[in-house]
Design a protein around this nucleic acid. Structure first.
Lengths: 186, 186
DNA sequence: ATTCACCTACCTAATGGAAGGTAACCGCAA
DNA sequence: TTGCGGTTACCTTCCATTAGGTAGGTGAAT
């Protein structure tokens, strides 16, 4: 299973830096030091790769969110850690969240990958809602009137923040885009 | 100049639905009813197309923003009209803002296109800042403490909103993502 | 004659595959 | 122990199509 994961790691990096249509199986093969036909062994078609990527990404990301919830007891700290996940993923404007990359080329994805994409947003937004609800209760996040609406907005805000930073290749644009969220954490 | 604009219209639609790497000159030629080599007459390389697309998009979008400013006198109304521009561009989750599509494949773009991309975000964010500043003064937008930070956040939020709606192919996700902004307009 | 906007024909490189093969490893039965 | 079959993970070779172009040409309008 080592080569398969190495391929997924590399594919994820390519997709997040160039978009899903911006790299080929040939690129992937070269970076992994195997032949293109061997990549097909692990992922019969590019669509299979998109599914495997998105499935893994969602599982790993949700694990990280659950780790945050276990390690931090206040809504404020959880939200700041969440923002840090997105900040790291932005990588100074050099990279995007995988789901952004896949959303753009979504018309070419199989239904299974689209379902994983939708599940990612649904799951992350649900987690954010629990955080904002906690923020309302523990008072560590300011101005929370509707946790559900706040969660939807924050989900969009962090994804948009990565795009703006990516377009400008500038980490400070990410910070400028999330500053309102940061300012609300006590 | 008619064919050139028809090509730009079609290219913009393709890019916003499939991503910039998701369509080819052959696709464009077919949809325009001319030969691929003729597309090259108008745009020598795909990079030239990306520049022309982004330049036009920014000019047209800024014109729309200025029209909003001329037609609406309150910050609230302006912000709602701005959101409406993004809502229309989202087209029920079927489409994205051009700059999102180009940001994803940004590593393959020429410097001129990247500069147009950066200028788009800069100009739109600057306009938003004037709106939030007005909102602070006229009291029609709630909870504005730092207009600059608000502008950065709103820029990110609307772009993220389109992505979330696109991923789910669901217009209600767009609405859920901007609801906090809407709720703040009096 | 020049320009514009189209054309045919062609190019190289690349794309996402498909088919058939090999070698190493493992488990199992004789 | 040995041989066999199955599995895994790689390989070469090949395919049809496509991608982004290039060169040279034509006809209409001015």
């Amino acid at each position: 299973m080592d080569t398969r994961n190495a391929l997924l790691d590399q594919a994820e990096e390519f997709a997040r830096r160039r978009g899903f249509d911006g790299f080929s199986f040939a690129d992937l093969a070269e970076s992994a030091g195997i032949r293109k036909a061997s990549v097909h062994y692990h992922f019969p078609a590019k669509a299979d790769l998109s599914f495997a990527l998105m499935e893994r990404y969602r599982v790993v990301f949700m694990d990280k969110l659950h780790a945050i919830s276990a390690a931090e007891s206040t809504a404020s700290a959880r939200l700041l850690q969440f923002l840090n996940l997105y900040r790291q993923a932005s990588d100074g404007g050099r990279s995007l969240c995988l789901c952004v990359a896949l959303s753009v080329t979504q018309t070419a994805l199989p239904a299974t990958s689209i379902a994983e994409l939708a599940a990612f947003h649904r799951d992350v937004t649900a987690w954010l809602e629990t955080v904002f609800r906690l923020g309302q209760a523990d008072g560590t996040v300011q101005h929370v009137s509707d946790p559900r609406a706040e969660a939807g907005a924050a989900m969009a805000q962090v994804e948009g923040a990565q795009i703006v930073a990516r377009a400008a290749q500038d980490a400070s644009r990410f910070e400028a885009a999330i500053a309102t969220l940061v300012a609300r954490c006590l």
